[in-house]
Amino acid sequence: MAVYRRGYQRYEGGLTSHLERLMVMPRFSWARMVEQKFVLILLVVSMFWPLLCATFVYLANHSELWQGFDTGFKKFLAINGKFFSVFMKVQSGYALILASVAGPGLIAPDLSNNALPLYFSRPLTRGDYILSRMIVLLGLLSLVTIVPGMLLFGMQAGIAGGDWFWNNWYLGAAIFFGFALYIVTVSLVAMTCSAYVKWRVVAGALVLAFFFLLAGASEMVNSVFRVEWASVFNVGYAMNTVWAGMLDLAIPDEKPGVLECAVFIGALGAGLLALLARKLRAVEVVK
């Protein structure tokens, strides 16, 4: 019988759960992403710094290895907020490069091939689509940020003992939530660039340019106007300041504080989400 002569009725079989539907796209995207050689190379390279830090933690906790050194060296080997702050700054650089390589491939191909109507004709909302694309990037970025960070914290807590953990549990929380905030922000930037620039290559350049140019522009405003407030528009600085607040580190008085930086990051995230929601529609008007 010809297809058009068939009668159709509503599907009454079992429905997959919302979570299952949500995880379909990440499953396929993940496989495609880890096929990229450069992503794998970056993942491997980004493990060197955590390995070095792990060696540092081991050395710091074995005082018999550095007996005879002065108190300055003892201070240098302290595992505290400053140590984790340096660790986080370095790893965030790798995360940014990873996001600029892997992020643009998430949405740009769907837009340039007009595939969004196909997604949205299924039981997926725009929020689901954004979330499912973001899960992939968050998963990848957490491999170079949260995972090594928590392993390092766990290693230190394991070697130093329960007392150290009870006195410094906030460092673990700061690493987790600080990195989580960072990778969500970077993912949102990467996805928005990917949505607005249909070419993957250009979108990747735009992700890098977004962070570097904002940093450069804010420094330029600071030096021309002889002020410090423009640092808040430097995403890297704003994120470091929020981390410093979480890690209970001192922040220079003249520079924008934790609150200002947190407000900027929040506003940036909200703005990026609004831009994404505006761009991701099941229809496209061709002028």
């Binding site: 290559v201 250009v202 350049a205 890098l208 570097f212 140019l213 450069g216 330029m220």
Partner: peptide, 27 residues
């Protein structure tokens, strides 16, 4: 001088040329 070397040369011209010249063939 600082602005020119740190912003204009390192970032402005770098990303500007990236946008213009990659576009010529890859675009």
């Amino acid at each position: 001088a600082g602005m020119f070397q740190y912003f204009y040369l390192r970032l402005g011209i770098f990303f500007g040329c990236l946008g213009i010249f990659i576009n010529l063939f890859r675009g």
